Amino acid sequence: MSQNPFDLGGVIVATTLAFKEDPSAPGGLAVDYDKFAEHCNWLIENGCRGVGPNGSLGEYSSLTDEERRRVVQVAVEAVDGRGLVVAGAHGVGWHQAQHWARLAKEDGADGVLLLPPIVYRANTDEILEHYRRVSEVGLPIMAYNNPIDTKVDLTPDIVEQLAEIENVVAIKEFSGDVRRVMEINDRCDIDVIAGADDLLFESLVAGAVGWFAGYPNVFPREAVELYELVTKGDIAGAKALYEQLVPVFRWDSRTEFVQAIKLSIDVAGNSFGGRTRPPRGPLSPEHEKAVREETQRALDALAARD
């Protein structure tokens, strides 16, 4: 564990967002704030450290400005001080990201998750300026490396420079290269957070101190157990549990991850997943069949443990 004054370790769930049918709403779907609040509460009651509204899994880019702000407010109300709320503050430029970070702070979030500039392929100086400007808001920042979607790679040398910026306390690593966990830890004092569910076990063993990703939306209790097994040194026990979950976890690294995780929630039946807003459409019949089968296999394996 680093010496950061504010750590973002543990299992923080990048929350899905519930919608309900409404022909007058964007894409024919209105945000179902009540179901979203219930989902956040359920995650906290099942031992998660916190929730992360307005990430890519929360479909932030498909929300109106009013919806995007209200989602954070609802998450803060639902968590009610029992855990952390780490709100996505992503924006094309630092001025947009700073705006969302200010609103998150005003509405009671504990920290922000922050991609580098989205859409525009920023250079290193622009990336560092982006994080410096958002740091001025005063909330702890978990930087987010997702070169698959942003086309900007926060390589370990850039992360080392980000770690020098006040309030940048963690990096969510989603490059798919587990070697980076140790390299970042060697270079600087910043918390490395596992971002890919299907590299969770390997990342924790290599030195990641937290998990901020999607499938804890479906398996929160088991996610916390898996995290705690590794941190307590029970590697064999953690590996055995991980092996039961990783086949369905692999959907977290695929293009259809939002639809897949929402469907898995519905298959598990403990919360509400539902539809996605455009531009995300429904899963293909083949993908839906695979997600259902892999989710059910995981549920059956977990039931056999109890």
Rank of each mutant, 00 (worst) to 15 (best):
K151T: 14
A14V: 14
A268I: 07
T15S: 15
S264I: 08
D252H: 15
C188P: 01
R132A: 05
K105I: 06
N46D: 05
A196E: 13
R221N: 08
E225F: 04
L139S: 04
L200G: 04
G281W: 10
F272G: 04
A18Y: 01
I118M: 07
D191R: 01
V85N: 04
K232H: 08
V112C: 10
E106H: 08
G55F: 07
E243Y: 07
V178R: 06
V86N: 05
L299M: 15
N54M: 13
P140T: 14
E222M: 05
L17S: 00
G273R: 03
K232Q: 15
L113D: 03
V71L: 06
V85M: 03
A194Y: 00
E77Y: 01
G111Q: 10
F212Y: 14
T276F: 02
R280C: 01
D157F: 08
F249V: 06
R254F: 00
D80P: 03
A196K: 14
G27P: 08
Q259N: 13
V86F: 10
F272W: 11
V79C: 01
G269K: 02
V224E: 06
N146S: 10
T276H: 00
K232E: 15
E166P: 02
S56T: 15
W211T: 13
L57D: 02
P117D: 09
F19W: 08
L84A: 12
G27V: 13
K105A: 13
N270V: 08
A109Y: 07
N145V: 05
E183H: 13
V169I: 08
P285L: 06
S61L: 10
I190L: 02
L113R: 01
Q259H: 02
E286C: 02
M182V: 14
F257D: 00
D186G: 11
E173A: 07
A75G: 07
G47Y: 04
A208S: 14
L199C: 08
V168F: 01
R277T: 04
E106D: 15
D198E: 13
Q161C: 07
Q3F: 09
D153L: 10
V248S: 07
L226W: 02
S135M: 03
V168A: 00
G214M: 04
Q296W: 00
Q96N: 12
E225D: 08
W42M: 10
K289W: 04
R102G: 06
A87Y: 00
D22V: 12
P216H: 15
R180K: 14
R275T: 12
Y131D: 12
L29D: 12
L226P: 01
D22Y: 11
G55L: 07
C40Q: 08
G273Q: 05
L204P: 05
W100V: 13
D153V: 07
N46Q: 13
Y215K: 02
A240G: 05
L229I: 02
G281C: 08
S253H: 03
P53A: 12
P279C: 12
V31G: 10
K35G: 05
I261L: 10
G47Q: 03
G207V: 11
R82W: 06
M142H: 03
V209G: 12
G111P: 06
Q161S: 14
V168T: 04
T16G: 05
E293T: 14
A104C: 11
W211M: 02
W211A: 11
